[in-house]
Design a protein around this nucleic acid. Structure first.
Lengths: 338, 338
DNA sequence: AGCCGATCTGTAATCGTTTTCAGTTGCCGA
DNA sequence: TCGGCAACTGAAAACGATTACAGATCGGCT
């Protein structure tokens, strides 16, 4: 049984063990030109000493960190969970590492992490910023390329990958309209640009159908949605259907409906965003917009790599379409209802 | 408008701008003894140059990486998602960074990441290993402390935080028994030690009640559970209830029940693990064991820090109890059934 | 024999920090 | 006036790698 090395061995130890210079060891490791005999001696020495290169030293010298940052609001948001997997996979295949940070929609924490990213000298950043940070992003003079995801400025100085939010929201409205619903309410998050974009799509689609939009903006929690629905459904002008801008709200709506004894879709139809596995299982199944999460993560990394190769190419903004997954929660409206 | 710095400024640039030596700059940054006058000059220079310390250099010199590794099978598993948040928060408060890796239950990928951890010279690792790696973990001679989570060797050389899996599984069996169920089947994952432990608890509890255990081991996917249930429920000796060892299987059971038109709990009761938000919303609500995920993450970090302070203190194994959240999916058995 | 070029190897500089050690001040008391 | 001490500051040596440059060896050619 080998005694655990007290301290990691360095390239010098390997050089000494092999009876060569550190340059030779480095060359063996980096595929430089080395004679077969020495190469073998060095490789044996590497095994014998249990040598592992020190990445800090390597990065310092080479000025490449081989690291991408990923800053999102909360990894527990399933959208970001999925995107992070795609990003991590892409990084893995490119031989890079990922540093993951949760900003909690908190600009201070976000700022701290941006500073960290600079200190890490990351190769690039994939970023879902808060509104506040998005506004001052151009003034920040970051030293690495940034690819925005999910949130996004209209015509930014940065590459971006986003869902076509207005169109997606409109799809939901159109679908509900086709199923016979007219009084369609909207619940949107009040912190992100995403909520705003989806609201805009909702508003436009309603107008196009000659319906009156009725939107409320709430904090991004299920509870907030539950409360909003309960209050709203007690009103005289209660809606027949809800379009909501994320899966937390979807939960809130279902909970409220259950508590008030309103059947879905009999008394209340629902449609929302994010095709999570459980949306299929709840009640009659929930109609949702499915985001191409894999592709969003992959494309973000792809844009990042393109930018690294051609730093001066014009900014690109990738707008991906969502797909509407129709389920029971938007079943045809019963004329008898109400 | 300031032109973007072509290259990050180093401590030398600051020193030059402030007209002092680099040592002084370093002391200002690190709260060393510096006169007020110079401190001010340096701080101004730092602002003027937009200086950010280079963490690679700092780590190389100080030999502290201030980084913890987190290697789990898949961040999309909600248990790990939640744990990762707790870990990240703890790290954030301790001024440390987190490197997140997904092993996909793949020993090769796991090995690659363990190597990476060594090259990063991480401060410590929080690790949910595959069975294969768990077995040879002692022979790996890692140079940093490891805290195991979720999976775990009986009496290892490493600290660990785990759920009391046998007891938790037994709680589910006892609960179902109390509700009148007798033919209680079990579905367990065939890759992790967790599945094995939960099976053991299930087996023991069944035996204690004088019931015959009937367990099957399946691949860790919802589809596998769905298929297993469909086949099993077509048998002559079909169970009245299922105990399943994770939330993916829970989904599989619900899907199968729905497809076969079996009402829950009328024709089929279900209980499982992981109190995810949606388990409340599916059907009559699903009875589950809730793991103290926050505490698991926090405790893992706490154990890590203790170990760093006292490298030689005896290994500790924290066993946390789950709580049984009772919902409609295990409603009292109808005598009329069958 | 002498020269050239190809091929390998080693020396030493470098990346950006921290930290030791050795000054350099200025102040105080004698 | 001078020694001594405290308080600060700077020069230089690490940390562990990569790499430009130069030196060594050797075969082949004239």
């Amino acid at each position: 049984m080998s005694a655990p090395a007290k301290t990691a061995s360095s390239i010098k130890d390997v050089a000494r063990a092999a009876g060569v210079s550190v340059a030779t060891v480095s060359r063996v490791l980096g595929n430089g030109p080395v004679s077969e005999a020495l190469r073998k001696r060095v490789e044996d020495a590497v095994r014998a000493t249990g040598y592992r290169p020190n990445l800090s030293a390597r990065r310092l010298r080479s000025q490449h960190s081989q690291t991408v940052g990923l800053v999102v609001s909360d990894i527990r948001n399933p959208f970001f969970t999925a995107v992070s997997r795609a990003v991590e996979d892409a990084a893995y295949h490119a031989g890079m590492r990922v540093i993951l940070c949760n900003s909690d929609e908190n600009p201070e924490r976000e700022e701290l992490y941006l500073r960290l990213m600079q200190e890490e000298r990351i190769t690039g950043l994939i970023f879902a910023p808060t509104r506040a940070t998005l506004d001052r992003l151009d003034r920040l003079d970051l030293e690495f390329p940034v690819v925005l995801i999910d949130r996004n400025a209209p015509a930014g100085r940065h590459d971006a990958v986003v869902l076509d939010n207005p169109q997606a929201a409109a799809m939901l409205v159109d679908h509900l309209h086709a199923r016979g619903y007219r009084r369609i309410a909207g619940l949107f998050g009040n912190t992100s640009t995403t909520g705003a974009e989806r609201h805009e799509g909702y508003r436009a689609a309603m107008a196009a159908k000659g319906l009156v939009p009725a939107a409320r903006f709430i904090a991004p929690y299920a509870d907030a949605a539950e409360e909003a629905v309960e209050r709203w459904m007690a009103d005289a002008d209660r809606p027949e259907a809800f379009v909501v801008s994320n899966s937390l709200f979807l939960m809130g709506v279902v909970k409220a409906a259950r508590r008030m004894g309103l059947s879905i879709p009999g008394r209340l139809a629902v449609a929302g965003f994010d095709n999570e596995p459980w949306t299929e299982l709840v009640g009659p199944g929930l109609t949702v917009i499915e985001q191409p999460v894999q592709e969003i993560g992959r494309s973000a990394m792809a844009l990042l790599f393109e930018r690294l190769e051609q730093p001066d190419r014009p900014t690109r903004r990738l707008v991906l379409a969502g797909t509407c997954v129709v389920r029971g929660s938007t079943g045809a409206r019963l004329e008898a209802a109400d």
